[in-house]
Structure formats: C-alpha cells, structure tokens
C-alpha cells in the first residue's frame, strides 16, 4: 500500500519527458514520425530538405521539445525558423497535420492517451509562433 502510494508520488513528481521515456523514446519515435510526415502529401513539401540527416536531427529536436524535454527554443526562434515555410503557405491545416502525425506515432508506440494529450498541448503552445502570428 505504502509502496503504491510512493510509486504514485514518484509518478506525480516526474516530468512528462521522464514519464514518456526520455531520449530513448525520442530515438524510437523519430523515424516513425518522420516517415509519416514524408509520406503525408498535405505537408511533405515543407520537409523537402536536401540533407536528410540534418532534417532528421531537426525532427529529433522537435520531438524532444514536444515531449517536454530539454530544449533551448524561444518563441522568436520558432518564428524565424518557420518564416520561409509561412511564405510557402504554411497554415493551420499543415500544423494540425503534423500534430496528428505525432499523435499517431505515439499511439503506434502504445503511449497512454493522457501523455499524448500533454504532448499535443505542448505543441499547441507553439502554434502562433510557428505560423508567424
């Protein structure tokens, strides 16, 4: 009984990043997520970087942030980093598609729905900066 309580306590104190599995979880999710994005005709033109390794590294940084992990992005970084995509027509529908792909990735990895909701909530906080509003 005490053990259970302690466990619950520990769970409560852990960050989202820890509960979701930290860097190993990011490494597992990134290939699945990036493959979904590149296969998604609604959005893959925004991800058409010539250097796939650089692009994959960016996806990893994004997932780390979305999982509540350590990152150093400011709202301003999000704005400047996506400005060229906004010029290409990036809008809410594309943002939604990326979040959907991320949700589907986590479902595929059997991440509990309440954690997925937290990830989606973190993504939402970046929406206006990403879309330059």
């Amino acid at each position: 009984m005490t053990d259970t309580l302690n466990n619950q306590q520990t769970t409560m104190n852990k960050t989202l990043y820890e509960r979701i599995g930290g860097e190993p979880a990011v490494n597992t999710a990134v290939d699945i997520f990036y493959r979904k994005v590149l296969n998604d005709h609604r959005i893959n033109r925004f991800f058409d970087d010539v250097d796939m390794e650089k692009q994959a590294a960016k996806q990893k940084a994004f997932l780390t942030m979305a999982f509540g992990g350590p990152h150093s992005y400011t709202g301003e970084d999000m704005r400047t980093g996506h400005a060229h995509l906004v010029k290409m027509g990036l809008d809410d529908s594309h943002f939604d598609a990326v979040v959907k792909n991320l949700g589907a990735t986590l479902e595929e990895l059997n991440v509990p729905q309440e954690l997925i909701n937290e990830v989606v909530a973190i993504c939402e906080t970046t929406r206006n900066d990403v879309l330059g509003r």
């Binding site: 990134v30 290939d31 990036y34 493959r35 590149l38 296969n39 010539v50 250097d51 796939m52 390794e53 994959a56």
Partner: peptide, 15 residues
C-alpha cells in the same frame, strides 16, 4: 545519394 537516403528511409530502412 541524397535522393536515395530519403527513398530507402521511406521504404522502411531506419536512419
């Protein structure tokens, strides 16, 4: 090489 990195990844190879 660059095109194939992407195509082989899309065909299932891990990065």
């Amino acid at each position: 090489v660059n095109q194939m990195k992407k195509m082989t990844f899309l065909k299932g190879a891990s990065t």
